[in-house]
């Protein structure tokens, strides 16, 4: 029993220690951001690997999620004779929730894990140490551009996800199931609010981008510098990011949409 408590205590302390180190790293990254201003190329390079390379999975998933929403929404709404509202259902689900959340989850799997693995391997192969010995701060040169790129890419990816999702829902609802085209768009425009829904969705995805990249970058930087350590860190990135995104989504939804 005492052992159990001791174990629990140690784990608890470990969690706090990691949180502390992660916060410290974040502070260092933020303090180094100004060094990126004269060198936008560093960020552009990372937007490529984080954003552009995630485009395919985001577009494909967004389309399918939109199509499923169109189908399910139609089947539910048609019972009430309210299939004209399909556009509202599809757009609200995407813009408020699925766009930001699913994008963040896919981001964790596609870009976050890659970030962690890359940074972890750089540590394991002493590239980070080598940078330090060359008088180049790895936090500024390696971590900061990746953090900025992830933070900026996420809302763009989420917007693309939602947009193609709305088109996917349109394709199924209007194209296949015969919902009136005018009703699909006009009901949507009538009920989806720029501030309440679109703007809050963007805020959400900025928050997710922040958290997801922070976790990915920290796990990579904190990885045990062996192949096993890097693989564990990669797994942790995906698990922690997913949990953090879902938890944060609940909090943000309660704050934004709760009355």
């Amino acid at each position: 029993m005492l052992d159990l408590l001791q174990n629990l205590g140690r784990r608890g302390l470990g969690v706090f220690e990691r949180l502390g180190r992660a916060s410290l790293l974040l502070v260092q990254i933020l303090a180094g951001l100004h060094t990126l201003l004269p060198r936008p190329r560093l960020v552009i390079q990372q937007v490529f690997s984080v954003g552009v390379l995630s485009l395919v999975i985001i577009v494909v998933s967004g389309t399918f999620v939109g199509m499923v929403l169109g189908l399910q929404g139609y089947n539910t709404l048609v019972d009430f004779g309210a299939e004209e509202s399909l556009g509202v259902v599809v757009a609200l689900s995407l813009v408020r929730e699925l766009g930001p959340v699913v994008t963040a989850l896919l981001f964790a799997g596609r870009a976050g894990s890659a970030l962690t693995a890359e940074i972890g391997l750089m540590k394991a192969t002493e590239q980070l140490s080598a940078l330090e010995m060359m008088a180049v701060d790895p936090v500024r040169r390696v971590l900061a551009p990746r953090f900025v790129a992830g933070f900026l890419s996420m809302p763009l990816l989420a917007a693309i996800f939602s947009a193609v999702g709305v088109l996917g829902g349109y394709f199924v609802g209007v194209g296949l199931l015969g919902v009136d085209e005018g009703a699909y768009w006009s009901q949507m425009q009538d009920k989806v609010d720029l501030y309440d829904d679109v703007y809050n969705g963007v805020i959400k995805s900025l928050a997710f981008g922040w958290v997801a990249t922070w976790i990915a970058v920290f796990e990579g930087h904190d990885a045990v510098p062996t192949s096993e350590g890097v693989s564990r860190a990669t797994t942790r990135t995906v698990v922690y990011t997913s949990l953090a995104v879902l938890g944060l989504d609940f909090v943000l939804t309660a704050l934004m949409f709760g009355d």
Binding site: T125, E126, S129, L131, M133, M134
Partner: peptide, 16 residues
């Protein structure tokens, strides 16, 4: 000071 030192790591540690 580090600019005045070069270090050769065990496996080179080239930026991949």
């Amino acid at each position: 000071l580090r600019k005045r030192m070069g270090m050769l790591f065990q496996n080179g540690a080239l930026l991949t």
